[in-house]
Design a protein around this nucleic acid. Structure first.
Lengths: 200, 200
DNA sequence: GCTAGACTATGACGATCGTTATAACCAGTG
DNA sequence: CACTGGTTATAACGATCGTCATAGTCTAGC
């Protein structure tokens, strides 16, 4: 098949993204990741010779790219549609998992890098995922008439509040925080497009 | 001394809050928690006979109460001052730790509860901490003339976006996301107090 | 001095961790 | 048939995990 791996490799990556989003990175073992994807332990080290760090990095990149793909598609209908799709995606994941799963990018972002100077690749991948989402949102906002100076701020607020709300929902086992944030964000986007606030 | 524990007990709890905020709950061992507080391992099981779960719960409650105390104090000068203190607190922690520490409540909130029906006490404590902060902010907003129906939404947005921004800052090793969110939130609070938006 | 009770020190228990090594399977090609 | 290269199976390495048990060291009050 494709020279870069068969279907089980992809299953491992996707499963890792899901399991990391539930348990956190450092708390998830390679054995659990393999079991979760119905793959043998030996295969994980076959496909990912650099071990856990490599698998985690690819899982984060996979999740980041998936969201980015959805975002790019839905933003074609405007920032409001993109925002709704973004928030709806997370809402679906949180509810479908009965508040057990969240965002794998967030899970990686909240863990301390090892004491050495080296910054783990997975953490860098998490930063890139966040930035990718922000950039798409900000560009769409600007294209639809939002104040360019505030577009980036608003995009950061959207990503940050979505991520935070996901965590709050999981703690409370209640989707209300995400819904409250969604309502507020949709209003914000609407006013950002209609009339830029008095700046001077 | 006090019947409920000496100074080293408090050191262990405070140290646990810090270490959990860096490494995550499941990824932090009791031995590390003891070492971090310069306390012997035996002492952790002496002060916290129910083990890791009890220590984690107390650490989350400690962090939640600390922030709540600060918030209550600063909100006396109005919602804008409270917001600034809240965001400034996190900013200080993130910057002072060189992007290694974050919010222990968030760290606990993003981890999956065990398969049984029992919800870990630490997770419940995390939910209560978030709610405590939200309630204080919402009450202050209402007291200062904000639309009561939107006060709760705005308070949730503040907490969610702060938590999310902290994680984004750690991933990027850059304080900019939190600063961007802060700027936006301060503007939001200002308009919420001045003129409630056209509701329709 | 002596005892009581709070704290600490030490070591162990089975389990699991990340990782590696080695051997077995199993598809295709000759 | 043999052979080869990608995949899986199995076992093991030292290290660390959460927890417990036991014994030691303190300090207070008699």
């Amino acid at each position: 098949m494709g020279k870069s791996g068969g279907p089980s490799r992809d299953r491992i990556v996707a499963g890792a993204a899901d399991l990391i989003s539930r348990r956190g990175l450092n708390a998830t073992s390679i054995r659990e990741l393999a079991r979760h994807a119905d793959a043998p332990l030996g295969s994980t080290y076959h496909y990912f010779p650099d071990g856990k760090q490599q698998l985690a990095t690819e899982a984060v990149r996979y999740a980041g790219a998936s969201v980015e793909r959805l975002l790019r598609k839905e933003l074609a209908a405007g920032p409001a549609a993109g925002l709704r799709a973004f928030l709806g995606l997370w809402r679906g994941i949180v509810v479908a998992s009965d508040f057990r799963a969240g965002c794998p990018v967030l899970a990686v972002a909240v863990e301390e890098p090892p004491p050495g100077e080296e910054i783990p690749r997975a953490l860098t991948a998490a930063a890139e995922a966040f930035e990718g989402w922000e950039d798409l949102l900000a560009a769409s906002l600007r294209e639809h008439g939002a104040d360019p100076a505030r577009a980036a701020d608003l995009a950061t607020l959207v990503v940050a509040s979505a991520e935070g709300a996901i965590a709050m929902c999981r703690a409370r086992r209640d989707i209300a925080p995400l819904d409250r944030v969604s309502r507020h964000l949709e209003a914000l986007i609407a006013t950002a497009l209609d009339g830029p606030p008095t700046e001077g």
